[in-house]
């Protein structure tokens, strides 16, 4: 799976790695760190249509619940059942083993609006100050 530098990021802390018409989506390392121990993941439904910036999944820690927003529009093409079975993976390996779902893009141009690694770093720095 990709290095942090190879993926794009959203303001809602999802990462997205695009390969052709398909994109893999997960939770950023920064976000998993902020949330603490993740105890539950609710993935989208298979083949669900998702819309950019609309919630489509949920991750929970003991005392909080975070919506995961679709970084781009499209249709769910794969789900990571391993991450759902073992949410601790999101803490251990957010960029690799614990990707959450894949989307077949309906509008590949939307990726352009997303932040690259440097921009995301700056965004996180700003948000925490």
């Amino acid at each position: 799976m990709p290095k942090q530098e190879e993926v794009k990021y959203t303001k809602t802390h999802e990462w997205i790695f695009v390969q052709g018409q398909e994109a893999t989506v997960g939770l950023s390392d920064h976000a998993q760190h902020e949330m603490g121990d993740i105890v539950f993941v609710e993935l989208p439904k298979p083949a669900q249509a998702v819309e950019k910036e609309k919630p489509c999944a949920v991750v929970e820690s003991v005392k909080s619940a975070f919506d995961i927003y679709a970084p781009v529009s499209g249709q769910i093409s794969a789900l990571n059942e391993e991450a759902a079975k073992e949410p601790a993976l999101i803490n251990q390996s957010p960029m690799d083993k614990a990707w959450l779902f894949k989307i077949t893009l309906s509008n590949p141009d939307q990726v352009k609006d997303l932040m690259d690694w440097n921009a995301y770093q700056d965004f996180v720095k700003q948000a925490t100050h």
């Binding site: 105890v39 539950f40 929970e60 820690s61 003991v62 005392k63 909080s64 619940a65």
Partner: peptide
């Protein structure tokens, strides 16, 4: 346990 389902955390969800 499983408190993140509940109103004090999920509110309208």
């Amino acid at each position: 346990t499983l408190q993140a389902r509940e109103q004090h955390i999920r509110r309208d969800k």
